[in-house]
Write a protein that binds this DNA or RNA. Structure first.
Length: 337
DNA sequence: CGCGTTTGACCTGCGC
DNA sequence: GCGCAGGTCAAACGCG
């Protein structure tokens, strides 16, 4: 008998809602089924939820007859467990909501700091080209912040390589918003939703070598950006115990593009990928979405690491932006030579 | 066997 | 000039 009672409890845990329904039904019309008590002896596999409820109810009733003093106890136990489980579910839901809010707040603060940092860098090093691409999830607040930063930055157009700055002179605010959303979608699809952070780009004035640095949350050894890469070296850099891996683009022979991949010291789940060079071949579709995003902000030839189309400096900026937008890609960041 | 990775050696730029 | 750190090369190795 005790084994039967144990079975009841297990079933109630698996299908709590149905159990509640079954109990309610049992209370309402349980008398009608008392004459089928002989079924209680059958240990069959329960395949139907209603059958399960009925059987549950029948077994309960059988036990009730044999040990009538246990009737309120068994139901109370089940109801108590249901209440506890439901309360726990509610608590977890509430906890999830709070965690989500914390994450959103943290992301907002992070992007805010990133923008301020960009402004400070631009003030300190007016000759150093800086690009900050906001990738992945982007809230409306971040978009607003970006707009404010863009309008207030007052960059010298001829000298600064602005992120979305220069392109904004060609599109209206609605289009910008749409484009930003497009960018987010494109990158999410590119990185399977794992891309969450920031890219930055800089040109070394001395060597004229340019780099795009992408920080992405990625569990694998390297993030899939659509291109084919061959590893040619690995080095442990000073200050970071994580080894830095060196990759060369193998989509086309002689392609000069290289990338360095290194885990972030602060957060091992973040992969910092630095691209360098210009592809001398058309990119795969998967890579082009990313390429157009980054490269449209890097319209000068040495800056177009990711899109060979943008390696052609003869293409005017307006052509670039129309290309990236008309191609349906997510390139919305303006570029400036 | 071909291709990609690993890893130690070598090269190069930079600061002192 | 020297030392250091970052970057690249290439032989050895592993895998399919």
């Amino acid at each position: 008998m005790s084994s039967k009672r144990q079975k009841h409890i297990d079933l109630s845990l698996e299908t709590a809602d149905d159990e509640v329904r079954a109990l309610e039904e049992a209370e309402d019309g349980g008398d009608q089924e008392e004459e089928e008590e002989e079924k209680e002896g059958c240990e069959v596999v329960i395949s139907n939820e209603d059958e399960e409820a009925n059987k549950h109810q029948e077994e309960n009733q059988t036990e009730e007859k044999e040990q009538s003093y246990e009737k309120p106890t068994a139901k109370d136990v089940i109801k108590d467990e249901l209440c506890v489980l439901q309360a726990e579910m509610e608590r977890m839901k509430e906890e999830n909501r709070m965690l989500q809010e914390v994450i959103d707040r943290t992301m907002n603060d992070y992007y805010d700091l990133q923008m301020k940092f960009a402004d400070i860098q631009q003030e300190d090093q007016p000759k150093e080209h800086q690009v900050f691409l906001s990738l992945g999830r982007q809230s409306s607040d971040e978009i607003k912040q970006a707009k404010v930063a863009d309008r207030g930055s007052g960059l010298a157009d001829d000298e600064e390589l602005g992120l979305s700055l220069s392109l904004q002179t060609h599109v209206d605010p609605h289009q910008r918003d749409d484009a930003r959303e497009e960018k987010g979608k494109g990158l999410q699809s590119w990185a399977a939703g794992e891309l969450t952070t920031i890219t930055s780009q800089s040109i070394n004035p001395a060597t004229r070598k340019t780099r795009v640095s992408v920080r992405a949350r990625c569990q694998g050894p390297t993030m899939n950006d659509g291109c084919q890469w061959r590893k040619y070296g690995q080095k442990v850099a000073k200050g970071n115990p994580c080894p830095r891996a060196y990759y060369r683009c193998t989509v086309a022979p002689g392609c000069p593009v290289r990338k360095q991949v290194q885990r972030c010291l602060e957060d091992m789940s973040i992969l910092v990928t630095t691209y360098e060079g210009t592809h001398n071949h058309p990119l795969p579709v998967g890579a082009t979405a990313m390429a157009s995003t980054a490269a449209s902000s890097l319209s000068s030839s040495p800056l177009s690491y990711l899109s060979p189309y943008l390696a052609n400096p003869s293409l005017p900026l307006s052509t670039m932006s129309s290309f990236t937008s008309s191609a349906g890609y997510s390139g919305i960041f303006g570029g400036r030579q």
